[in-house]
Structures are given as C-alpha cells and as structure tokens.
Amino acid sequence: MKKLKEYTIQFVGLKTGIHHYDYQINDEFFEFFEYDDFNHVDVKANLELEKKPNMLDLRFDIKGSININCDVTNEPFDQPIENSLELVVKFGEEYNDEYEDLLILPHGEYELELQQYIYEAIVLAIPYKRVHPGVEDGSLKSEMLDKLEELQPKQKETKEEEEEIDPRWNKLKKLLNDNK
C-alpha cells in the first residue's frame, strides 16, 4: 500500500474542526486496484473531514469523467460521473467495517486509508447500462448499429392480421364485448 500513501490521512495531529483534501484520480489509481474497465479516468475527489473529540465525519464528493466502452456498440465515450459518500469513523475495541457508512477503528490508531472508499465511490457512480449518447439521439454512425438494425426482427402490420381473421371470429368477439 506504499504506492498509494498519498491517500492516507494521519488524523491524530489534526485539530478539532473541518479539514479539506483534494485528490486528482487518474489511470494509475485504478491500476493499483487492477480494475481495467475504464479506458481513461479524469476524476476529482474532494474530501471534507470533520474531526470531533470522539469520532470523524467524512464526506467524499466525486466529480469528473471516465472514458468507457458502450454496451451496445463497443464505441468509447466519455461518461460524466458524480457521486457522494459519507462515512463515520468511530473508535472501539477492534477493527470493524461491516457497515457501509460506519467504520470502527481500534483505539490507538492514528491514520486512515481512503483509497478504497474513493475507489468504491467512483465505481458505484457508473451507470449500470453504459450507452453512448450518440446511440440515444441517433447521431452515432457505426457498423455495429447498422448490423443491429439489419438483424432486428420485423414486425407485422396489424392491418394484415385483421384481414386474415375469419369473419365468424369477429362476430364472436362482438358478442363478448356486448355482454360487458
């Protein structure tokens, strides 16, 4: 973890009150986690740490863009992301991170590693379905979209279906509708 030492805060020497930290997240950050779903990352993480006598309140604000591939066309595009994460750090007998918004550190700890929380905030900000904006507005031209259009199932016209129905069925349907 020495590679990401800049994401470690030593809170013992901090005065009681609010402290601000800014982090610029790039591709090297995700190489550490061996996460390669992104082509390029340009995200700013702002941390507001409020030190209280018996606990720490942390608020992460994540904003930026990531370059990912579209799920439909596999074309790369820049996806803007924005997320926030709040974390309360309390002190107890032993380390406990079972809860998503509460971290318990053992008494005597003097530093807090933040890289995992920043990583999770960024990854959770990505939409589940990644669709290129050009696909949604129809401006993207790609071979994949042309092939999908070609292979799309054809829909029959409803007029043709109505003409093919035996007229006796229409009289029965009329009887059903009259009884309602």
Score class of each variant (00 low, 15 high):
residue 104 I to D: 06
residue 104 I to W: 04
residue 104 I to V: 15
residue 104 I to R: 07
residue 105 L to Q: 00
residue 105 L to A: 00
residue 105 L to T: 00
residue 105 L to I: 01
residue 106 P to C: 13
residue 106 P to K: 14
residue 106 P to R: 12
residue 106 P to L: 12
residue 106 P to D: 11
residue 106 P to W: 12
residue 107 H to N: 15
residue 107 H to W: 13
residue 107 H to Q: 15
residue 108 G to Y: 02
residue 108 G to Q: 05
residue 109 E to K: 13
residue 109 E to C: 13
residue 110 Y to S: 15
residue 110 Y to K: 14
residue 110 Y to W: 10
residue 110 Y to L: 11
residue 111 E to N: 14
residue 111 E to S: 15
residue 112 L to H: 03
residue 112 L to Y: 05
residue 112 L to R: 02
residue 113 E to C: 06
residue 113 E to I: 07
residue 113 E to S: 10
residue 113 E to Q: 10
residue 114 L to M: 04
residue 114 L to A: 00
residue 115 Q to S: 13
residue 115 Q to H: 13
residue 115 Q to R: 10
residue 115 Q to F: 09
residue 115 Q to T: 04
residue 116 Q to T: 12
residue 116 Q to F: 15
residue 116 Q to H: 15
residue 117 Y to L: 04
residue 117 Y to R: 05
residue 118 I to A: 04
residue 118 I to M: 06
residue 118 I to C: 03
residue 118 I to V: 12
residue 119 Y to V: 01
residue 119 Y to S: 00
residue 120 E to I: 00
residue 120 E to G: 02
residue 121 A to C: 02
residue 121 A to K: 02
residue 121 A to T: 00
residue 121 A to H: 01
residue 122 I to Q: 02
residue 122 I to R: 01
residue 122 I to A: 04
residue 123 V to H: 00
residue 123 V to R: 01
residue 123 V to Y: 01
residue 124 L to M: 14
residue 124 L to N: 09
residue 124 L to K: 09
residue 124 L to G: 07
residue 124 L to Y: 07
residue 124 L to E: 06
residue 124 L to T: 13
residue 124 L to W: 06
residue 125 A to F: 08
residue 125 A to Y: 07
residue 126 I to C: 09
residue 126 I to V: 15
residue 126 I to W: 04
residue 126 I to H: 03
residue 127 P to V: 11
residue 127 P to R: 11
residue 128 Y to F: 14
residue 128 Y to K: 14
residue 128 Y to Q: 15
residue 129 K to L: 08
residue 129 K to P: 02
residue 129 K to A: 10
residue 130 R to Y: 06
residue 130 R to T: 11
residue 130 R to W: 06
residue 130 R to E: 08
residue 130 R to F: 09
residue 130 R to Q: 13
residue 131 V to W: 13
residue 131 V to A: 13
residue 132 H to R: 00
residue 132 H to P: 01
residue 133 P to K: 08
residue 133 P to N: 11
residue 133 P to Y: 10
residue 133 P to A: 10
residue 134 G to H: 08
residue 134 G to Y: 09
residue 134 G to I: 09
residue 134 G to W: 08
residue 135 V to E: 03
residue 135 V to P: 02
residue 135 V to L: 05
residue 135 V to M: 05
residue 136 E to H: 10
residue 136 E to F: 08
residue 136 E to G: 08
residue 137 D to N: 14
residue 137 D to I: 07
residue 138 G to N: 05
residue 138 G to D: 05
residue 138 G to L: 03
residue 139 S to C: 14
residue 139 S to W: 13
residue 139 S to T: 15
residue 140 L to T: 02
residue 140 L to K: 03
residue 140 L to C: 03
residue 140 L to E: 04
residue 140 L to Y: 03
residue 141 K to Y: 09
residue 141 K to V: 12
residue 142 S to N: 10
residue 142 S to M: 05
residue 142 S to A: 08
residue 142 S to V: 06
residue 142 S to K: 05
residue 143 E to P: 02
residue 143 E to G: 07
residue 144 M to R: 14
residue 144 M to W: 07
residue 144 M to H: 11
residue 144 M to A: 15
residue 144 M to D: 09
residue 145 L to R: 01
residue 146 D to W: 00
residue 146 D to I: 03
residue 146 D to Q: 12
residue 146 D to Y: 03
residue 146 D to H: 07
residue 146 D to A: 11
residue 146 D to P: 01
residue 147 K to L: 13
residue 147 K to R: 14
residue 148 L to E: 06
residue 148 L to N: 06
residue 149 E to N: 13
residue 149 E to M: 10
residue 149 E to I: 08
residue 149 E to K: 14
